[in-house]
Structures are given as structure tokens and as C-alpha cells.
């Protein structure tokens, strides 16, 4: 098992490296010259050339790339903002906890509200309870998040004045953002849990449990639910990605000084180090989360754990035990 974890961590590195290279290249080859933006439209050619040399932007692509990678991986340095000259990494470290709190809050709410909703719907399938839950879930995944956020702000902050409309401070500042950001997640989780529950309820081993004389409650919670939750864990990682993405936009709606606002400000100002740094950092965070989710898998499903332990050699196309 330890071998598997180590192997996965090692495998993560080339992925992050390649992602970094990819992002760097995309920004490098995109149209627009940052130097001109920084100096303004009236700079002379001499000034531009001088500035470019000063910033190291006249070096060949490979040199710049190498320099960037070296600084990132060995010094945790993502460069400095073109405009403010402040360290990008430093700024990310200050802002990231806010974004993380927001994203984690959304995920927690998604699970805590979404899973019971899905279980209820599955247990009362085809009754009005089920239909109501699923209608809400459908609406939940169809409404644009930031529009919903704005409507919430209009109602609860502007008209009723119960909650603040923007900024950070105490926990009350996170209420509206997390609610707005969770709606998608709750809806998705509810749908996922419901369908996975329904599948499990029909399975043979549930019939066996019934034939042994277990009560319906025991069957539901001890026999069905653990199996139904396996696919739910599977999409947790995915849902975190969605929460992160949602954070990008919602931070802008609520003016939360997290990575989302940092990134959008950087894009607007063509401040490449900021944009590069944020995206690569988020990709790294995401990879780590996916690894953790995959590990969580092993604790829940003994079949997966066995599979991980077996994985020394490359996975062959035929060798999947679970798809019987």
C-alpha cells in the first residue's frame, strides 16, 4: 500500500511539470506584449527594449522556461508580478486559505445536504418526496451559479440586510458565498447518490440480507448505503474541481480576496506571472486532492485496496477484476 502511495506521488510530479510547461507555453505564445502594457502606449522602442532586457523577456523561450521551472520546483518561487513587483507565491499563500475555506465549505455542504437528499429520494422512489427532491436537484444544476449568487445578494443583503454582500471578516461573510457555491454541488450529489442507491437496492446481496432476516433499516444503512457511497466518493474529487472553479467566479461576485480575484485581476492586467502562478498552483492543489480521494477509496472499498496493492506492473486492459 505504501508502495502504491509512493508510486502515485512520484507519478504526480511529471504531470505537474508538464502542466506547468503547458501553461507557461500557452501564456508565452499568446498575443500581446506585457512590456508594452506595463510601460503604457507612449514608450519608445529604446525604453521597451531596455525594459524587456531588465525583465529577462529577451531570452530565448527555452531559457525562460527552464528558469521558470527551476525557480518553481526548487525555490517555490513563481516570479514577481509585473505590475506590483510583489512575489506571486507570497500573495497566493495569503489568499489561498480563503479560497480553500470557501471551496471546502461548498464541498462539505454538498455532501452533508446532498447525500441525505439522495438517499431519501431513493428510499421513497416514485413518490412525491422523490419527485420534489429531483426537481430541486434538476433546478440546482441548471441555474448559473453567479446569477443565483447575485439574486441571493439582492434578496438577503440588499433588500433584507441580513448578511453582508461582499468582503471578508467573520463567518457571516462566507454564508452567502458558500450557499451560492454549494447549490450545484448539492444537486449533483443528490442525483448521484439517488441513482447509486437505487442500483444498490436492487442488487442480489441486498436480497440476501433480506432473506437472512435483517430489518429494512439495517439493510438500508449497513448493507446498501456503504456500497452506494462508493461512487459518491469517486466524484468527490471531481466535485472539488467544480467547487474550485466556482470559487473563481463567485469570489468575483462577492469580492472575496482569494485566488479567484487575484487570477482575474492578473488576466485583466495581462500580468502573466500572476496568471501562470495561480493556474499552476491550482492544478497542483487539484492533483493532490485527487490523490487523496483515490486513497480514500481504498479505505472504503476493499476491492480497490486489493487492486492498489497488486499494482506493481502496468495495468493491462484485461486485468480489471471488478467488471465481472
Amino acid at each position: 500500500m505504501i508502495r502504491f502511495i509512493t508510486k502515485r506521488i512520484i507519478l504526480m510530479i511529471p504531470v505537474v511539470v508538464i502542466v506547468s510547461i503547458l501553461i507557461f507555453s500557452i501564456m508565452y505564445f499568446s498575443p500581446g506584449d506585457p512590456v508594452e502594457v506595463i510601460l503604457g502606449g507612449k514608450a519608445t522602442d529604446v525604453e521597451i527594449a531596455a525594459k524587456r532586457a531588465e525583465m529577462g523577456l529577451d531570452e530565448p523561450f527555452i531559457v525562460q522556461l527552464g528558469d521558470f521551472l527551476y525557480k518553481f520546483f526548487f525555490k517555490m518561487d513563481l516570479g514577481r508580478s509585473y505590475i506590483t513587483q510583489k512575489s506571486v507565491w507570497g500573495e497566493i499563500m495569503v489568499r489561498f486559505p480563503r479560497t480553500l475555506m470557501f471551496a471546502v465549505g461548498c464541498m462539505v455542504l454538498s455532501v452533508v445536504v446532498g447525500v441525505p437528499l439522495g438517499v431519501t429520494a431513493a428510499v421513497h422512489r416514485n413518490t412525491w418526496i422523490d419527485r420534489t427532491c429531483m426537481v430541486f436537484a434538476l433546478l440546482g444544476i441548471s441555474l448559473p451559479e453567479f446569477w443565483l449568487a447575485m439574486q441571493l445578494v439582492i434578496i438577503f443583503a440588499l433588500k433584507l440586510g441580513w448578511l453582508p454582500a461582499y468582503g471578508i471578516g467573520g463567518p457571516q461573510y462566507y454564508v452567502l458565498p458558500v450557499i451560492a457555491g454549494s447549490v450545484h454541488g448539492i444537486a449533483k450529489q443528490a442525483r448521484q447518490t439517488r441513482s447509486s442507491m437505487l442500483e444498490v437496492i436492487r442488487s442480489d446481496y441486498v436480497t440476501t440480507a433480506r432473506a437472512k432476516g435483517h430489518s429494512e433499516t439495517t439493510i438500508l444503512y449497513k448493507h446498501a448505503l456503504p456500497n452506494a457511497l462508493i461512487p459518491v466518493v469517486q466524484v468527490l474529487g471531481n466535485n472539488f474541481a467544480i467547487s474550485l472553479g466556482g470559487a473563481l467566479i463567485l469570489e468575483n461576485v462577492f469580492s472575496i480576496p482569494g485566488i479567484g480575484t487575484y487570477l482575474t485581476a492578473g488576466i485583466a492586467a495581462r500580468d502573466y506571472p500572476i496568471v501562470r502562478g495561480c493556474v499552476i498552483f491550482l492544478a497542483l492543489v487539484f492533483s493532490i486532492i485527487m490523490l487523496l480521494v483515490d486513497l480514500a477509496f481504498a479505505f472504503i472499498d476493499p476491492r480497490i485496496k486489493a487492486q492498489y496493492e497488486k499494482q506493481g506492473a502496468k495495468r493491462k486492459a484485461t486485468g480489471r477484476e471488478i467488471n465481472v
Partner: peptide
């Protein structure tokens, strides 16, 4: 898939304009 969807859209859109 190592990059969340929206993030990818953001960066490609930022690069392309």
C-alpha cells in the same frame, strides 16, 4: 483532466483573447 475544466477554459481564453 489534471486541470479543472473552468480553469482550463480561463487560461485558454486568456491566452487566445
Amino acid at each position: 483532466q489534471a486541470i479543472p475544466n473552468i480553469l482550463l477554459a480561463v487560461i485558454v481564453s486568456a491566452a487566445l483573447g
